[in-house]
């Protein structure tokens, strides 16, 4: 059972500001969806290994070489606010 408090907590973790109406809707919908997913709990998966990757890939590495850097203007080109060569953000606290 997902409570309104759960929804508020999860929204905070995901940095989403929800309106009262949205909290209402998401509480209901998450309950619907997760309620449907309860079926999973019926399955006994005690001895089953989780699959995080479908391919048996392992040990993929790159060599320690330095490549081309981006021109700084490219790095900053899309940023919403800048101060000379820095990304600018509102105060932290």
């Amino acid at each position: 059972m997902v409570t309104r408090e759960d929804v508020e907590h999860v929204a905070l973790l995901g940095r989403l500001e929800l309106t009262e109406e949205e909290k209402e809707i998401y509480t209901r919908q998450l309950n619907d969806i997760l309620g449907h997913f309860q079926a999973l709990q019926r399955l006994d998966t005690g001895n089953i290994q989780p699959t995080a990757h479908v391919l048996p890939l392992k040990n993929v590495y790159r060599e320690d070489w330095v490549g081309q850097h981006m021109p700084r203007e490219d790095a900053l080109a899309n940023c919403p606010d800048r101060d000379e060569n820095y990304f600018k953000v509102p105060k932290i606290v």
Partner: peptide, 18 residues
Amino acid sequence: VRYGFRAAKTSDVMDMFM
């Protein structure tokens, strides 16, 4: 912070993220 949309008029970083 780095690209894309940023909400206007925010008081601090947390507020901006949200």
